[in-house]
Design a protein around this nucleic acid. Structure first.
Lengths: 258, 258
DNA sequence: GCAATAGTGTCTGTTAGACAGTATCTA
DNA sequence: TAGATACTGTCTAACAGACACTATTGC
């Protein structure tokens, strides 16, 4: 117990066996958009994808792995993850969130290596640029389903990816992270598509009305207006122009009892 | 990047500086009950308390700290936390959940020490027994408010406690952890008191009716019945017997959009 | 006019929220 | 019978869910 070691022991923690490394691994999600060929304008098809890197060397040479790297003494783990995200993608902003710790003995054949998983939400072009710079053999962008069920993943990265997928689904419904996958102003159909892409069994027939006209949910979104107060519309995805919305900074508190 | 180290480097991770220790610290919550003196039977007053240990030696000698201890190579961090919980309280079951990692450089003057916080929900008698075995000078049971605002806490344990408090409040509303603070069968007033103790600004005037007679929430609770199907009642806290309930294993999915 | 998205109308049954009122039991 | 908890009644406004219907505009 920390509090009951004698002073000698506390000074010399190195007398114990200590870990061989503390990496941060990052699940980088992105939402890709593919135009559908249709008679008129239509919403693109979305896919939730994850970036993986093919390992070159032992262990798990040839398998796909989450990008990541070891933490240094001078930085917190969040800073490690930020740094790795920057190194991998070139961007130093965007949503980055802690996921959890993976410490099962034997998870890494190189030694006692405790990994911290993060997940990031990055824009499509970022990962595509990264992929273009390298070989498609080296960097891959896969749908979550492919990555989970069709690829050989290194270490316990399948478990990490599974946890990350569960977490992003939860967050998509309970927070406003959807904004990470949308431009500042967006239509309600776009928002609905984003939610459905991440959480396929999310279904709301009266989505538009529920968002716009129920008092208890007012405050999550607000209409986008020009400086003169004129409502902003978009006909990017439809013939009929649609009202644009933006997120406020309000997130309601959820409860199973209310 | 993990995947781009050459084989030599990967074999000898020890050539890098590695952490001096990876402890698990545990925020042990309990709910204490104090009978109120009243003319007739009445509900007890509840308090959410946390167990702290007074440090004997450098660093932070004399300050209060979360119980915890260093992880070993042969165990996962969850197992470390379980083991510490057992060592501190004598019980090897009960709710134990991961909270997060604390790795700000300099957080521990002893060296590069990355701490993993857990929180546990234990029964009142467990901590009282522990406290009786030691000195009140050594082991303390404080309300969260006291611990956060009136005590000198070691390391970054105030931040950890603050995070744990936020998390338990969220969990209390969004999951069924309330069951950890209740007997198997309980009255709705008891449940309401438990929720309110952890989340003081939770207020529902029609709590009983909302829980029992709204279809969308059916499934969280069910009436406790004897084997013959007779509803079980309790008059422990009231003259008029109250229906007993128990949790099912169902937890609804929450969403800000529905 | 057709195709596609963007909404609105309408109906029924359920729920929220406020608050008054009744029920039950024992000290 | 007083005091405490345990409910139930009642009313209004809001909401959910289903589905039909209208609106807009480029092609």
């Amino acid at each position: 117990m920390t509090s009951e070691l004698d002073p000698k022991q506390q000074y010399d923690a190195k007398k114990y066996r200590t870990p061989d490394g503390i990496p941060a691994d990052i699940v980088m999600f992105t939402l890709t958009r593919q135009e559908r060929r249709a008679a008129t304008k239509s919403l693109p098809r979305f896919d939730l994808k994850v970036m993986l890197i093919r390992r070159k060397s032992w262990p798990f040479a040839g398998a796909w792995a989450l990008p990541g790297g070891f933490s240094q003494e001078s930085e917190s783990l969040y800073e490690t993850a930020r740094r790795e995200l920057k190194e991998e993608t070139g961007v130093d902003e965007g949503h980055l969130e802690y996921l959890g710790v993976y410490s099962t003995p034997g998870r890494d054949p190189r030694g006692w290596i405790i990994s911290h998983a993060f997940f990031a939400l990055v824009e499509e072009w970022v990962l595509e640029k990264r992929q273009a710079a390298d070989d498609a053999q080296t960097v891959g962008l896969f749908t979550v389903q492919e990555a989970l069920h069709e690829l050989e993943l290194a270490f316990d990265h399948r478990e990490i990816l599974q946890d990350a997928y569960r977490k992003i689904q939860e967050q998509m419904l309970q927070t406003t992270i959807a904004k990470q996958f949308l431009p500042e102003h967006f239509t309600l159909s776009e928002l609905y598509q984003v939610i459905q892409t991440v959480v396929p069994d999310f279904a709301e027939l009266n989505f538009i009305r529920k968002i716009t006209s129920t008092r208890s949910r007012q405050g999550i979104l607000e209409e986008a207006r020009s400086e003169e107060g004129v409502p902003l519309l978009s006909n990017q995805y439809s013939q009929r122009p649609a009202q644009l919305y933006k997120f406020t900074d309000f997130t309601p508190r959820l409860s199973i009892y209310t």
